[in-house]
């Protein structure tokens, strides 16, 4: 069992895939809802339905990505995505 020698990379990867993947999916879904050119309700509904595909693809990618760094970079992408999705709230909060 190779994993025994180096458990930490595996644990980090699993956490990045599950929790980081959720954060990424959350941000992507919100961004998608913000950007889809539909009525507000429809955009939210469609983005929500697609969210599971986003999560699924992220998890599969997180386990097949060559290095852990790539995975963590993918997780970090959720920050700018969330900024796009929540810009009205962010601006409102700064005032």
């Amino acid at each position: 069992m190779k994993a025994i020698h180096s458990r930490w990379p595996v644990i980090v990867r699993v956490l990045a895939a599950i929790l980081g993947g959720y954060a990424f999916t959350y941000a992507t879904t919100a961004t998608l809802a913000r950007l889809l050119p539909f009525a507000r309700y429809d955009a939210a509904a469609v983005a929500t339905l697609l969210s599971f595909v986003v999560y699924l693809v992220f998890v599969l990618w997180a386990f097949s990505a060559r290095t852990l760094g790539q995975v963590l970079a993918g997780v970090a992408l959720s920050v700018p995505l969330a900024a796009i999705a929540f810009w009205p709230q962010l601006l409102g909060g700064m005032r």
């Binding site: 919100a30 809802a33 955009a43 939210a44 509904a45 983005a47 929500t48 599971f52 999705a85 709230q89």
Partner: peptide, 18 residues
């Protein structure tokens, strides 16, 4: 998953409906 999608993934509701 889709049945409880609003519970699992409230992102769109949070973004567009606060």
């Amino acid at each position: 998953l889709a049945i409880f999608s609003a519970i699992y993934m409230p992102a769109a509701v949070d973004a567009l409906y606060d």
